[in-house]
């Protein structure tokens, strides 16, 4: 498999920002929080050109942090991200415009005091993709591409609805002519009827522009719809990776299975209320994760081995990998 976007052994720690006083206090034995959170822990992924990789998990699992590491917004503590062999970041600075991001909240990601046309033009002018004189036509082209009327370029963000703002955010990302697009919950804040419009736009654009995508969402049905492959994260680690239909159809990790089981589904042919599986307990604090496999305190298949030893990521089938000691048992359960 030829890899276009490579994420190699990437980790990211967040430590507390201690003031000098707090550091001294900690040394003197006072109760100052000095532990770090390992938000992303030794993640390796490779994405082919034109492929959309879905990234799912519950809040706090590190999916957004991983997205920011890939986009070059945050420097990794260790490991590297490369596009077509070239690094995204060098010594803590982003050195490429080939990866761009669309964020969840289009209300927060657009400058309220800037005309939206100028917001979209700012990056391309700074990086020489267009000139100040030609910027208007350049922006108009991208506006049409995302289904906005080019005459709206002179308006301000508050004059648009949520769906239209997300189109502007997409136009801004695409105007940089990226090869890789990171979408961090792009439809989470939109209404259902608008969500469908943006998903359709996304599908059309990624196909036409041959974009390589990382699509982050907690909404499994959205990820299932847009992705080729999906990675499931739990407490900073990737627990399962594989083609969407296979991972959703026969989950190899007990967490994947439980996560899918607990999503309320729209069932049209049942007169009885649907019974759904629930996962016991809550996600543990990432400040003090459990030993061994992070999922073992909530896992129905957990054994002594699971609390002692962290499972290695191992191949299950072609293109599929899982980090679980008992994946064969889980697979047998899933296919039954």
């Amino acid at each position: 498999m030829s890899s276009f976007l490579s994420i190699d052994n990437v980790s990211r720690l967040f430590g507390p920002n201690l003031t000098t006083g707090e550091k001294i206090a900690a040394k003197l034995g006072s109760k100052v929080e000095t532990r770090s959170v390992r938000a992303v822990s030794d993640v390796s992924l490779s994405v082919r050109k034109g492929e959309t990789l879905g990234l799912v998990g519950e809040s706090g699992c590190g999916k957004s942090t991983l997205g920011r590491l890939i986009a070059g917004i945050l420097p990794p503590t260790s490991g590297s991200v490369t596009i077509d062999g070239k690094p995204v970041m060098e010594s803590g600075t982003k050195v490429t415009t080939r990866v761009q991001t669309v964020f969840q909240d289009p209300f927060a990601s657009l400058d309220p005091r800037m005309k939206v046309g100028d917001t979209v033009a700012e990056g391309p002018i700074a990086h020489g993709l267009t000139t100040k004189g030609a910027a208007r036509d350049y922006v108009a082209g991208w506006f049409e591409r995302v289904g906005l009327d080019p005459v709206w370029a002179d308006r301000y963000p508050h004059q648009f609805s949520g769906g239209q703002r997300q189109r502007i955010a997409i136009a801004r990302a695409l105007a940089m002519q990226p090869d890789v697009l990171i979408c961090d919950e792009p439809v989470a804040s939109l209404d259902v009827s608008i969500q469908a419009q943006i998903i359709n736009l996304f599908l059309e654009l990624t196909r036409d522009l041959e974009l390589t995508c990382v699509f982050i969402s907690h909404d499994l049905s959205v990820v299932q719809h847009v992705s080729d492959r999906v990675a499931v994260m739990y407490l900073g680690r990737i627990v399962e990776l594989g083609p969407v239909a296979e991972v959703f159809g026969t989950p190899a990790h007990p967490y994947t299975s439980a996560l899918f089981g607990s999503v309320p589904k729209l069932v049209l042919d049942a007169d009885e209320l649907v019974h759904f599986e629930t996962i016991d307990g809550e996600v543990p604090s990432p400040l003090s994760p459990p030993s061994g496999c992070y999922y073992h305190p909530r896992c129905p298949l957990a054994s002594a081995q699971c609390s002692a030893q962290q499972p290695a990521t191992q191949p299950v089938a072609e293109l599929r990998a899982v980090a679980c000691h008992h994946f064969e048992q889980q697979l047998a359960k899933a296919s039954a």
Partner: peptide
């Protein structure tokens, strides 16, 4: 009918979703 049809679960993966035109 439009709300139900626009859900991703109602369409085959990768195919365009049924959308309700316009906004509220």
């Amino acid at each position: 009918a439009g709300l139900i049809a626009s859900l991703p679960a109602m369409a085959a993966p990768g195919t365009p979703l049924t959308q309700i035109p316009g906004t509220t």
